[in-house]
Design a protein around this nucleic acid. Structure first.
Lengths: 244, 244
DNA sequence: CTTGACATTGATCGATCGAACAATAAGCTG
DNA sequence: CAGCTTATTGTTCGATCGATCAATGTCAAG
């Protein structure tokens, strides 16, 4: 029964070893084939467990057992509880690491950089943005946490609305020489129309990474087409709102 | 310790009753306050459990315990296994009931009904469509099942693409006197652009029903605005595709 | 090398899970 | 009312969950 994963022998040995010499030998052989196995520096071990937890919970959901997580990590289950007091606390750190840890603050500056044409700005932003969130880990943890009803998701939505949606609406207004109001004066129609596009881009990632459904365009082409569609639709909505 | 839910006393009594007369009385009193409690017709009981399971699993996810489900139903846990051989089978029937059970076959006819202007057709369709899927139950079960990786979700997406997206793309082509190809000849750009809108509408429901985030327009106004945005964007994408 | 600090393990706890089954009692029939 | 069918219950099982802790073994300092 050979295993390819690192330290897999560890997690699978449940019976008491009768021959300590053999056991030692087995451990050493695994150790030599994988590298450092035991007694990592606490900060390294903690990081390793956290990283492993992100991909594990992304795949199995937060109901996944700590024993299976430990098996995937190649350590014992009890070790996890040496670095995280409870499973709940480990999950909380997974959220922190995924949400706030992957947001790039330069994104908002990029959107308002008027020295670049709006279309190019939006394409560049969405190429960067999707390169972060279009991963199975990010999307699945986002969806799982949303279903758990944690406040972190509605906070994320409020954050996206304030730092992206309203900001881009202002830029579109400027581009079309529309009355350049402040962010707070943007109409509900504009915001919801931009949400329409932003959600559409998000869901392309869900179709591809979560549902593993075939998509019909690569990311680059898709983002370009989506930005073109948005830049064609938003002025029409703005004009209709004024005319009414 | 008074309880308001139907038959709640049942599920909470775990200790052996020492006085059968008192127990009888308690049951009777609950019975009279709620109505029929025991010995329903098998088909009725089965339907009751299935309906309860839909809302229960939608709220707690499919990892929710059968004991809690039984408590919500006001019956014992073992009764559930008299009507469904395993929990897995119950979940399978929940999918059936939610997905295929709520699709209206007349929707596809409605889309192709050329006697009504396209804008009005699309608005009417999406008002109907969203009145079904914009419920917490439907959306949450859809998201939960998608995260479980069941083939039913990618099947749903393929179904939507064939019965809605391609069909509407043909109608948009016809409306704009564009070369009226068959459904299979529609370009990748068109399909993904329409997915963009369709996903945006879907996600409005997710924001409202799942994340319970505030939305800025009511459904009617939102659907009208979204259809207008789509009808403004799609021809532009079609023209750009041809010009290139 | 020896030794001490501590990272890691193995065993175990109580609670809870899906599931099985004999005992109970509701409601129809005569 | 008595008798029969069977819907429903109460109890229990083995597996698995998060969590605890004394025992073990590693690695660096002296």
């Amino acid at each position: 029964m050979r295993r390819t994963g690192p330290n897999a022998d560890y997690a699978n040995v449940t019976q008491k070893r009768t021959n300590p010499l053999m056991a030692k030998k087995a451990i050493v052989s695994v150790k030599s084939s994988v590298g450092i196995r035991r007694r990592l520096r606490p900060e390294d071990r903690r990081r390793q467990i956290l990283d492993g937890a992100i991909s594990f919970f992304a795949e199995h959901g937060f109901e996944g057992g700590t024993r299976d997580l430990a098996k995937q990590l190649g350590v014992t289950q009890s070790l996890i509880f040496n670095y995280f007091p409870t499973k709940e606390e480990l999950i909380r750190e997974v959220y922190q690491s995924v949400y706030v840890g992957r947001w790039r603050s330069e994104w908002t500056d990029l959107i308002s950089n008027t020295s670049v044409p709006l279309r190019a700005r939006l394409i560049e932003f969405y190429i960067n943005y999707t390169s972060v969130i279009f991963s199975s880990d990010w999307l699945r943890i986002y969806l799982f946490s949303g279903l758990k009803g944690l406040p972190i998701n509605s906070m994320w939505i409020a954050f996206v609305e304030d730092h992206l949606i309203r900001r881009i609406c202002v830029e579109v207004r400027r581009e079309n020489n529309f009355c350049e109001g402040t962010m707070s004066e943007i109409s509900a129609e504009e915001i919801e129309t931009f949400w329409l596009f932003h959600s559409g881009i998000f869901y392309y990632g869900v179709r591809r990474e979560v549902y593993r459904s075939p998509v019909h365009l690569g990311v680059q082409k898709f983002v370009e087409t989506s930005v073109d569609a948005m830049l064609a639709a938003l002025p029409a909505i703005m004009r209709a709102k004024v005319a009414q």
